[in-house]
């Protein structure tokens, strides 16, 4: 299709409004995710980060607005085109979302069996390679219930990268992990991006992760129900117009009275 636009913005979000039934979650979201970005969706708990991600991966239909992938509007595309777009994505879920009735190898093999013409032996080799990439070599025949939460997340990642996706989505990858595992996962994400050139969209509120890997991002606010700022995390920390954003990224290490006051000014 139009590859040139692809190389500029992998994802464009335009005037997006998200609702659960009649409850407004976020409105007027506008941002671009460039190809090769590690794009962080950040914000406090309950501001709708995961909801935004679920809209971006096409699970929920937005109340208003559109999301374009390489210039193509996902929600106005035909079902066949949507399926095709989905196959160029990899998604990892908060809980791993592994198929509990299948072994890790079968989990990772599923998309390969469904969408490629590879032989059984070739699939087995690719599965071993993908599991080894996430540090789970030798765990092929384990069932998801028998491994730890961190391992489940990594196995979920192995399944997500099985088809070498163009865009990788992560929903709170480091939530519930100890600091070392979280840091290793961050490194893994960076290396995957560097070696495959994939665009990464990641939902997190872990400051360490945000600064370690984020190259661009958007900050969602629960109170005003819209985005407060976009840009790289460093830029937002140092130059954001909104004290709330700076305070979030600085872990609240600014005088709180000053924060709330200037925060209100900035909003009004």
């Amino acid at each position: 299709m139009d590859i040139q636009r692809c190389s500029e913005s992998a994802i464009q979000v335009r005037n997006l409004t998200l609702k659960y039934g009649t409850r407004l979650i976020q409105q007027d979201l506008n941002f671009d995710v460039d190809a090769g970005d590690i794009f962080v969706i950040m914000g406090g708990s309950g501001c709708g980060k995961s909801t935004l991600l679920k809209h971006m991966i096409g699970l929920y239909k937005p109340a208003e607005g559109e999301i374009l992938y390489g210039g193509q509007n996902f929600f106005s595309s035909s079902e066949a085109e949507q399926q095709k777009m989905r196959r160029s994505w990899g998604v990892t879920y908060q809980s791993g979302a592994l198929f509990s009735a299948m072994t890790l190898a079968e989990n990772v093999a599923l998309p390969l069996q469904q969408f490629s013409n590879l032989s059984v032996a070739e699939i087995r080799d690719i599965v071993s390679y993908k599991l080894a990439l996430v540090g789970l070599a030798g765990y092929e025949d384990y069932y998801p219930a028998r491994i730890s939460g961190g391992m489940q997340k990594r196995a979920g990642l192995a399944r997500a990268i099985a088809m070498d996706p163009d865009i990788l989505f992560f929903d709170e990858p480091s939530a519930g992990l100890d600091p070392l595992s979280a840091q290793r996962l961050d490194e893994l994400i960076l290396q995957l991006r560097d070696s495959t050139g994939a665009t990464v969209v990641i939902v997190t509120h872990e400051l360490a992760s945000i600064f370690a890997i984020g190259s661009n991002g958007v900050f969602l606010d629960a109170e005003t129900r819209t985005q407060l700022d976009t840009g790289s995390p460093e830029q937002m920390l140092n130059h954001s117009r909104h004290a709330k954003v700076r305070s979030f990224l600085a872990r609240g290490e600014m005088s709180t009275t000053h924060n709330t006051l200037s925060g209100r000014e900035a909003r009004s």
């Binding site: 096409g58 989905r86 998604v91 979302a97 198929f99 469904q114």
Partner: peptide, 15 residues
């Protein structure tokens, strides 16, 4: 499978 997001995972795999 719904609770574990396994159904969502299938949808996003394009199945």
């Amino acid at each position: 499978m719904q609770v574990n997001e396994e159904v969502d995972a299938l949808v996003t795999l394009g199945i």
